[in-house]
Design a protein around this nucleic acid. Structure first.
Lengths: 333, 333
DNA sequence: GATCAGTTTGGAACCGCTTCCAAAGGGACT
DNA sequence: AGTCCCTTTGGAAGCGGTTCCAAACTGATC
C-alpha cells in the first residue's frame, strides 16, 4: 500500500504538500496540485485512516448502543440514526446489547474515550454511576428513549400521551374509563406512571371522578392483561372504555372481550399505546410516538455536541399522535 | 488523557513494559505488573485505539454494507451478523445504503483498504468492476444473499425455493396459481427472478400452462402488494392460489383478501417467502430461509478470511424449508 | 537589480502505540 | 566469586498521517 511519502517522492514534492492536496486545503499552486493528483492516481494511493485519526485526535465514529434488535421500535430508531448520520462524515459503530452485563461492559469500555467521538444510547436508562463516568470523562453522549438527570436526551411526553388517550375516550362520551398498566412503582421505567398521570389529569379536567376499581396494575405481558381484563369486565359496573399502558396489554384485553363476547367498539372502547406493528394489523386505536424521528433528532443533537463541544444538557420532548382505528367508538347508551 | 508514557513514568518502568502489561503478553514479573496496573488505575489510563491500530496495521472493524433497514429480512440478517461478531474482538460499522449511487460511493471508498479489515455485503450484488477492485486490492470480502463469480458468498437456491412453494400449491390441487413479485428485472436483486424461474419450472413439470395475467410485478412493499392483489383477485377468472416473492407482499395480499371478504385458505391459498417474524403471528404458510443463519455464517466466513488471510472462494448454499401454516389449503371446488 | 510582502513549499516534530534488540538482572551451578 | 543461560526490562524506531516553522519562491514596485 502506498503511503504519503511514496506519493511525495513520486510527485517530487514534500509530504506536507501532499497532505495539503489531500485535505483540499489552503493554497497549493494549481500545477503542483496537478502533479500530486497524478501521483496519487498512479500509485492508487488512499490515506490510512488510523494514522489520520491518531494525528487528528478524532475518529469520526459514533458508538450506537442499543438492545439486540428484537423489537421493531429499536430498528425504527436505528433507521432514524442512519438517515441522519448518512449525510455527515461520521459513521456509526453498532454495539448490540444482549444482556445487562454486556451493556455495562460496553458502556464501561466506551466511557474511556479515544474509542469514538460520541455515544448514542438507545432505549437504555443509565445508572447514576454510568452517567457520572461519562460526564467525568467529558464524552459527548445522548440518550434516546430514556431520561437522564445530567445527559442530554430525547423522550416523549408520556403525561401528555396519557392525557391524549384518555381525552379521546372522553370525547367519545365515555365516563367509565379504566386504566390498565404495568406496575406503576418501578425505579427503572417511569413511562407507565407518567401515562397514568395523564389519565388522571384528563379525568380531572373533564370533571370525572377517579374510581379506584378502574385502576389495574400488574406484571408485563399480554396474558396478564387478559386475566386482569376478565375481572375488570365482569365487574358489576364495568367500564365502557379501557386505556392500556401498551399495545401488548391492549391485545390481551381484546382477547378477553372476545372471550366474554363483548363487542368492540360497540360495548367496549379500547385504546393502546406505542403503535406496535401488530396494532396496525389488529386495527387497534393507539398512541403513536415518532420513533424514526427520535433517532434523527438524537443523532443531530449528539453531532452538535461533538462538533461544537458544547456543554450543558438539552432535553427534547417529541410529540405524540393519536392513531384512531377501529377499537374505539362512541360510549354505548 | 493519560498516555502510555505517563503510565511508564508513574510506574517507573519503560513504555515497552507497560505495553506488555496492557497486552497481557509474555513475561512480566508479577511485582512489575502490579506496579504498572496500579499506575494505570491511578491515571485512569486507557489505550488510544487509533494509535494501536496504526501500529498494528489492523482496525478490528468490519464494514457491513446493507440496504437501508426497510425490510425485516435485512434486519434479521444483521442480527445474525451481530450475534456472531459479538463473540469476537471485531466491531461492525454500518454502511446503510439508500440508493445505487450511495452503494457505489461506499464500495469505492471501502475497497481502498486501510479503512476496515473486511467487507460484509448484504443483499447487494456487485458489478464486475466492483468485484475486480476488491480482489485487486486484496480486501477480504463476503457477500450474503447475493452470488458472485469470484468472491465468497452465502446464498440460498431461490430457484429450488420457488419450485418448492409452487409445488406445494400444486400438491394441494391448485391449477390457477399467481405469482406476485418485486420487479423481475433489476440489477440490484436477482432473487425475485430466481423464484420466478422456480415457479415456472414447477408449473411446467405439472403440465400447467403459464398465464401472463397471473404474473404481477411491482415495487417493493406491503401496500403495493395490497393494491395489486385487489386487481388480481377481482379479475374475471381469479387465481385460487397466490405465491408471493416475499412475506411482506403476502401480508398485503392477506389484507386485500380480507378487504374483499375472500376467506383464506378456503377460497384462496397464499404462500409467502422468507418466514419473517410477522408470518408466524399471522400463521402464514411460507418458505423459510435461514436469514439469521446467513448473517452468522457470512460473518464467520469473513472473519476466517480476515484472520487466516486465506485465499480462494467459498460459496455456501443454505437450505430452504417449507413452513406449512394456515394460509394454504386444498383447491376449492 | 534590489527590496519587500505575500504565497507556496519542504520537512522535522509530533500523535500514542507496538516491537525489536541489546542490556541488565536473576538463579543455578562450578 | 565467577560463569552461564534464561528471563525481564528499557527505549529507539517505526506505523502514516498533520501541522508548524522557516526557507524559498513569486512578482510588483522603486
Amino acid at each position: 500500500m502506498a503511503t504519503i511519502k511514496d506519493v511525495a517522492r513520486k510527485a517530487d514534492v514534500g509530504v506536507g504538500t501532499v497532505s495539503r492536496v489531500i485535505n483540499q486545503s489552503d493554497a497549493v499552486r494549481p500545477q503542483t496540485r496537478k502533479k500530486v493528483l497524478q501521483a496519487i492516481d498512479d500509485l492508487n494511493f488512499s490515506p490510512n485512516l488510523s494514522a489520520r485519526r491518531l494525528s487528528l485526535g478524532k475518529t469520526w465514529q459514533i458508538a450506537v448502543i442499543l438492545p439486540y434488535l428484537t423489537l421493531p421500535s429499536y430498528v425504527e430508531r436505528l433507521r432514524g440514526v442512519q438517515q441522519e448520520i448518512g449525510s455527515t462524515d461520521y459513521y456509526p459503530i453498532l454495539y448490540s446489547v444482549g444482556s445487562p452485563e454486556q451493556r455495562d461492559e460496553y458502556l464501561n469500555m466506551l466511557s474511556e474515550k479515544t474509542q469514538v467521538d460520541g455515544l448514542l444510547i438507545i432505549s437504555m436508562p443509565l445508572s447514576r454511576q454510568q452517567t457520572r463516568k461519562i460526564t467525568r470523562n467529558q464524552i459527548p453522549a445522548v440518550l434516546i428513549d430514556a431520561a437522564d438527570p445530567i445527559l442530554s436526551h430525547i423522550v416523549v411526553d408520556d403525561v401528555a400521551g396519557g392525557e391524549l388517550a384518555t381525552q379521546h375516550l372522553i370525547d367519545l362520551g365515555h365516563q367509565k374509563i379504566a386504566y390498565l398498566s404495568d406496575y406503576l412503582d418501578t425505579p427503572f421505567q417511569s413511562s407507565g406512571k407518567d401515562r397514568y398521570q395523564g389519565y388522571r389529569i384528563a379525568l380531572q379536567k373533564a370533571g370525572i371522578p377517579f374510581r379506584e376499581e378502574y385502576l389495574k396494575e400488574g406484571p408485563k405481558g399480554r396474558e396478564q392483561a387478559y386475566q386482569t381484563a376478565l375481572q375488570l369486565l365482569t365487574h358489576s359496573d364495568p367500564p365502557s372504555a379501557v386505556f392500556t399502558s401498551c399495545d401488548t396489554k391492549a391485545i390481551g384485553v381484546l382477547d378477553a372481550a372476545r372471550h366474554l363476547n363483548i363487542p368492540v367498539p360497540d360495548q367496549l372502547s379500547l385504546i393502546g399505546y406505542d403503535n406496535i406493528r401488530d396494532s396496525e394489523f389488529l386495527n387497534l386505536t393507539t398512541i403513536s410516538q415518532p420513533l424514526l424521528e427520535s433517532g434523527v433528532q438524537g443523532t443531530r443533537l449528539l453531532l452538535d455536541l461533538v462538533e461544537n463541544n458544547q456543554q450543558g444538557q438539552l432535553s427534547v420532548e417529541l410529540p405524540l399522535t393519536l392513531i384512531t382505528r377501529d377499537t374505539t367508538g362512541p360510549a354505548p347508551g
